[in-house]
Design a protein around this nucleic acid. Structure first.
Lengths: 219, 219
DNA sequence: CTGCATTTTGACCAAGTAGTCAAGTTTTTG
DNA sequence: CAAAAACTTGACTACTTGGTCAAAATGCAG
């Protein structure tokens, strides 16, 4: 009975104390940093503990297994990461909706690159921890939005385009700037850090994709 | 003096025997499989040795360090992976050249997904082993092709588009199908394995990007 | 302020893993 | 067909790392 917040099996609500809240946050923040840089296997509990400013046994008091930290982190991140997709409004203007979606994704890629990398690494290695999430939550959401895009195409508001591949292209392109940051920097050099870079990126990506799917007269 | 292919310090040509050639190949093939799935830290020498069908000390006879296998593999892969970019012909028809480039990349993504993942994983984690390659070989090549694209834009043969972001978009989109394969499968299900899938993907990607950069009359 | 619950940690353990070594086996070569 | 060179491996070492544990320190309710 040494587990945190556990007095009797009956007390299901699992009351969390002030200290628990603080320390779990500290751990998860540190873990995001480390996991996103080194991957699951490449990360040691000691690294996370040091970054979180506590001893390893203390960290393990809050998350008894390394896996627990990782999974909690992924769950926490995924919802937030997918949110913009859910916001696509079937009744809005197609180009406007997609422009907004792409812009949001590019902004997230810049503001939370670690989240993007954490996710990319997980999927790259076969998504062992989140394959359930992919089929149970992601797929239905994508199916729904794909149907919306397909309707837009049917109504002639977009050029004929496969909605799934369009969504993949948006994901790939926007997340590329977080996931392949080192490569982007190696090629574009000092431009990357500069103030207007995000806007320049957004402009370029939007220009190609939106013009690529804008309805065309003949064919 | 237990290193392979090393008799005297003077014999620089490093003659390789028949057995060396066979076994190095065996090791590198096995290593590509394992490294691309589990990453550098996630891979054990024993795993590679078993897959290559030899004992661990024997493997270490050919590659004294784990790092050596990894770096050799990356170097071998990178040249091949970048080749299509070099083939873009400044004197060809822009749309044709880019169509060909994108098609080649999509085909490679399907035929050598492990190579794509190996590379993606390396870059995702900061490219510690290949940052030199990125700046010394990749950047100059990209700069050269970007200049070509910029010229095409200047001649009105392409819509105004930032050449670097266009190249990134092509990379991101095509490699997405290898790197995020699990996610693509989770969403598109059985379609992915089916015969025409690569063609369908190519068609969708080409349609969006090429229409996105085709010269437009007004603005 | 006291006694119980929660939190913290030093010391430790067991498993896993990169790399070594010396002794054997096979291949090549003169 | 020796003898040398190249190749192969079982047994081992040193080290890292996930996780345990018991005891100490701290927080907190009455």
């Amino acid at each position: 009975m040494t587990r945190a917040a556990k007095k009797k099996a009956s007390e299901t609500p699992e009351k969390t104390t002030r200290i628990q809240e603080i320390n779990r946050r500290l751990i998860l923040d540190a873990a995001l940093d480390v996991f996103s840089n080194y991957g699951f296997r490449g990360t040691t509990i000691d690294q996370i503990a040091e970054k979180a400013g506590m001893s390893k046994p203390n960290l393990l008091y809050y998350f008894p297994r390394k896996q627990n930290i990782y999974v909690t982190l992924l769950e926490e991140t995924l919802a937030e990461w997918l949110a913009p997709l859910a916001e696509i409004d079937a009744d809005g203007d197609p180009i406007e909706q997609l422009r907004n979606y792409i812009t949001l994704k590019i902004n997230m890629s810049e503001s939370h690159p670690e989240a993007s990398r954490l996710f990319a690494n997980e999927v790259l290695h076969g998504a062992p921890a989140i394959s359930d999430f992919l089929t149970k939550h992601l797929k239905p959401l994508v199916d729904e939005k794909a149907a919306v895009i397909r309707r837009w195409v049917g109504e002639g508001k977009l050029a004929p385009v496969d909605p799934y591949h369009l969504i993949f292209m948006i994901w790939a392109t926007t997340q590329h700037y977080a996931d392949f940051d080192v490569q982007v920097r190696a090629i574009m050099g000092s431009q990357v850090g500069r103030p207007g870079f995000r806007e320049q990126t957004a402009q370029a990506v939007l220009s190609i994709i939106l013009n690529g799917i804008r309805p065309r007269p003949v064919s």
